[in-house]
Design a protein around this nucleic acid. Structure first.
Lengths: 334, 334
DNA sequence: CTGAAAGCGCTTACAG
DNA sequence: CTGAAAGCGCTTACAG
């Protein structure tokens, strides 16, 4: 290491004040009995000399690291990026309040090697999983290691603490609105159904139909849309099939649908209504403006981190926390 | 903490094998003399019992953390996101090879509170600054603390290890190509010139003119373009001023320019040529395809991390490393 | 209310 | 080639 300041330690403080390290430690942590006078004296000295306890040493003594690991998927697309940006800001905000820092880790598909290294090296006290799979190696690893963790988004694994937006209700509500507006042929375009969130949204979609005594039309439902070509093809088919409303499961899909409709000179909302499940910045400046669900992603991050920290402190937390959402009606469904 | 596995320690290994902790430590680290037979025996035992040294404890003994801090700007826009994604992947790749992990930190503008906490808490051995300012509080903090750090991108601060793409040359070359193609009225649209990179690009732009014995026309140069409205206004004016080529300093600007031109029914490349300084995924599917500079961002991350690790190991590194680029000619400048 | 001592799990001169 | 001991900078029973 290059020559840094030799940092002042707890021993230096103790010596300078003629007390024991124990006493200094107590003054800082607030744990254990200590005379008010000595306490003040120590705190003042610390303030004045800008003493900062070494968190690493503290952690070693307490078997703590004061780090949490945030795991991002390695293969995310442009649309997801603002989501991850925002949620990390939220996590960071509450982590920082407890002197916790964030160790970043990316997991490609179900390859948990990176996460495993971090966990085996005991670099973190807990983990936040930003994306889970129906069959999820991360969850299995963490459960076997008995390390506290939470998932952002829902999972079917048992005894997993989950923080999520209520996608199912949200999509049920959005779909219901379209049904109330007398849409006859409602199409659904969705992505990878290996994600639990995709399944939840799909479920909400069908529930809405059921509550109206109707059934979704399978020929208007397209799932596992991955590429632009697939989406364009679906749109072409939907035009032929006379769909009068297209619900898109995410904004990436939606923005491509819009481009394709414009090419085909199909007008929104006159010829077809459009709604999207998630209002990211991708769709922000779209004309016409797009009806969509609105989720507070930063809040999601904050809630996730808060619960994880509680688990680390051995406090009990609800197994499932559902955050609310808003339906934002815009021009595209007029 | 919830009840986790009590991890096996170096003492357990030593005891089981009837050797000292010292010997076990040496077998693992490879430092110090040790009999080949004992070494094998220890390594085998470790392998079999899946012993992982506690990196935190190791770090405490060595005054190391095996963490580096990556600092992102807090206020980045949609366009920058893919850049940060990619560079972090690169950093992570080489960090992981040395058992290093990444502590994430975001700095809003010049508020270094978060970074300062991490540094004061001695949570990291070094720092990678992803974005620097002309006057930069991060750099000043790090220099005063004498903590090893590198910057991605150039800075005018002295004695700072910088890893960058050669923006100046890249922009000189791109501009030169436009000049060679007999463009008469070349416009330049740029962003915030508080960033050093903006200045470098601008410099390359003017140098190209100089080498052709010409001078850039100031009335065609628009800097500090922040909002969509500003960009649209600039484009309108450029149409009036009969610009025959527009060079955009980044893809966010470029994509808005393209939208505006389409609205105004100005055709690319027939009516005006377009080039952009950075080929992010934002412009990927644009029609016509856009001529731009191509930088390998992952490589940038890898190079940055590699140099930082070298500094941490007290090896010497060049103060400035410039990575190469490519000019990718596409339809927009035909 | 305060302190000496052991301990967290490693590393590393120093001896032998 | 190997080990006992001190040390990294904290915390925390246990005494007093």
């Amino acid at each position: 290491m290059s020559e840094q300041y030799k940092n002042i330690t707890i021993s230096d403080v103790a010596e300078a004040l003629g007390v024991s390290k124990t006493t200094v430690s107590r003054a800082i942590s607030g744990k254990g009995r200590i005379g008010e006078a000595t306490r003040q004296r120590i705190l003042e000295y610390i303030e004045e000399h800008d003493y900062k306890p070494n968190v690493i040493a503290k952690g070693l003594a307490q078997s703590r690291t004061y780090n949490i690991c945030v795991v991002m998927p390695g293969n995310y697309s442009l649309v997801d990026l603002p989501f991850f940006q925002e949620i990390i800001m939220g996590i960071q905000e509450v982590a920082g309040m407890s002197e916790y820092d964030i160790l970043l880790c990316t997991c490609q598909e179900n390859d948990v090697a990176a996460l495993e290294r971090i966990v085996s090296n005991r670099k973190v006290d807990g983990v936040i999983l930003l994306r889970t799979y129906v069959k999820d190696a991360q969850i299995e690893l963490l459960q076997s290691k008995k390390l506290p963790f939470v998932t952002v988004g829902s999972t079917d694994y048992e005894h997993v603490v989950q923080i999520d937006h209520d996608h199912e209700s949200a999509c049920r509500e959005l779909t219901s609105i379209m049904l109330m507006r007398k849409m006859k042929r409602i199409a659904l375009l969705g992505g990878n159904d290996a994600f639990v969130v995709t399944k939840s949204r799909y479920k909400g979609f069908t529930e809405a139909f059921t509550s109206f005594g109707r059934e979704p039309e399978n020929e208007l439902i397209y799932m596992n849309l991955e590429s632009r070509v697939q989406i364009e093809k679906a749109v072409e088919e939907l035009i032929d099939k006379k769909a009068d409303c297209i619900i898109c499961m995410d904004d990436a899909i939606c923005s491509r649908v819009l481009v394709k409709l414009r090419q085909e000179e199909i007008h929104v909302p006159q010829d077809v209504r459009i709604a999207s499940f998630y209002n990211s910045s991708v769709l922000e400046n779209s004309t016409p403006s797009i009806t969509s669900l609105s989720f507070d992603v930063r809040e999601l991050g904050m809630a996730s981190c808060k619960e994880l920290l509680q688990m680390i402190e051995n406090e009990s937390v609800p197994e499932k926390t559902l955050l609310t959402y808003e339906v934002v009606l815009k021009e595209s469904t007029k």
